[in-house]
Amino acid sequence: MPVLLGLLGSEEHQRHHEQPIARWAEDLERAGFTPGEPRRLYDYWRAPAYLLTAS
Rank of each mutant, 00 (worst) to 15 (best):
H16N: 14
P38L: 04
M1Y: 06
P48Y: 06
H17Y: 13
E18W: 07
Y44T: 01
A54D: 07
H13D: 14
D43W: 04
D43T: 14
P2M: 05
R15A: 15
A49V: 12
E18F: 10
L52S: 09
R15Y: 13
F33K: 11
L5K: 08
E29Q: 15
Q19N: 08
D27W: 05
T34P: 00
Q19K: 07
S10I: 00
P38Q: 03
L8C: 11
R46Q: 02
L41P: 02
A54H: 14
G32D: 00
E29S: 12
A49H: 13
Y42L: 09
L52E: 07
Y42W: 08
S10R: 10
E37F: 01
A49N: 08
R39H: 02
L4R: 11
G9F: 07
H17W: 13
L28E: 04
T34I: 03
Y42D: 12
Y50P: 01
H13L: 13
A22W: 12
A22S: 15
E26D: 15
E12L: 08
P38F: 06
Y44V: 00
S10Q: 07
E18Q: 04
T34D: 00
L5I: 04
S55H: 11
R30P: 00
V3P: 00
D27S: 05
G9Y: 05
W24S: 05
E29D: 01
E37P: 03
Y50S: 00
V3D: 12
P2R: 09
L7D: 12
T53R: 14
P20Q: 07
Q19G: 03
M1S: 05
T53E: 15
R40Q: 12
A22I: 12
Q14S: 09
E29W: 01
A47K: 04
S55V: 13
V3I: 10
L8S: 10
P38E: 01
P35R: 08
P2I: 07
D43S: 12
M1C: 06
L4D: 00
L4M: 13
E18H: 13
A54W: 05
L4Y: 00
W24M: 02
R30W: 05
P35T: 05
S10K: 11
A25C: 14
H17L: 12
Q14W: 01
V3E: 04
L51D: 04
L28M: 14
Y44G: 14
W45R: 10
A49L: 10
P38Y: 10
G36L: 08
E11I: 03
G32E: 02
A47Y: 09
Y50V: 01
P35N: 03
A49R: 05
